[in-house]
Amino acid sequence: MVSIIIKVQDLIDERGLSQKQLAEMTGLRRAAVSEICNNLRTSINREHLEKIAEALNLSNINQLIELKVEQEE
């Protein structure tokens, strides 16, 4: 089984930011940031990911997204 993990909450925690601050930095709605941080969205707007990456000064998509592969037994 494969799942995609969005690591935004980890990134803002590392930087000492809040979801509210990230929303202000990106111009995204606080509810949208919360859903992304809590991996509740089934689809994420590419523009949102770009805004988050820019706000957090990321240089590699792997800092933002993780592909998790679980072995089936």
Rank of each mutant, 00 (worst) to 15 (best):
L56I: 10
V2R: 02
Q19W: 10
I36N: 04
H48E: 08
E24D: 15
I65S: 09
N57T: 04
E66G: 00
I5Q: 11
N45A: 13
N39K: 06
I4S: 03
T42D: 15
R46Y: 09
I4Y: 11
K68P: 00
V2P: 04
L28P: 11
N60P: 00
T42Y: 10
E47R: 06
E24W: 09
V33E: 02
L17N: 01
E72G: 14
T26Y: 05
E72F: 13
L17Y: 01
S3Q: 07
L56H: 04
I44S: 08
I4K: 02
A55F: 08
L58E: 02
I36H: 07
I36P: 03
V33Y: 05
V8C: 01
G16N: 13
N45Q: 14
S18D: 02
Q21R: 13
E66D: 06
A53N: 07
E14K: 08
S43A: 11
L22H: 04
K51H: 05
K51R: 08
N39C: 07
I6D: 01
L22K: 04
I12M: 09
L22E: 04
L17W: 00
I12H: 03
D10Q: 13
Q9V: 03
L28E: 09
S43V: 11
A23V: 13
S43K: 10
E70G: 03
C37Q: 12
I61F: 09
N57E: 02
N57C: 08
E72S: 12
R30D: 14
Q21E: 13
L56Y: 07
Q19P: 02
N62C: 04
I12Q: 01
L22W: 03
G27W: 14
A31T: 11
E70K: 06
R15H: 03
A23L: 14
N45M: 07
N60W: 03
L17F: 01
N45D: 15
N62Y: 06
I6L: 14
V8R: 03
I65W: 08
R41I: 09
K7N: 00
A53W: 07
R41P: 01
L64R: 00
V8W: 06
Q63C: 05
T26F: 06
E70N: 05
S34E: 08
C37S: 15
E50R: 05
I65A: 08
E47D: 14
E73I: 11
I61M: 02
D10V: 09
C37D: 10
N45T: 06
I6S: 07
L22F: 09
A23K: 06
S43P: 00
L58K: 01
I4P: 00
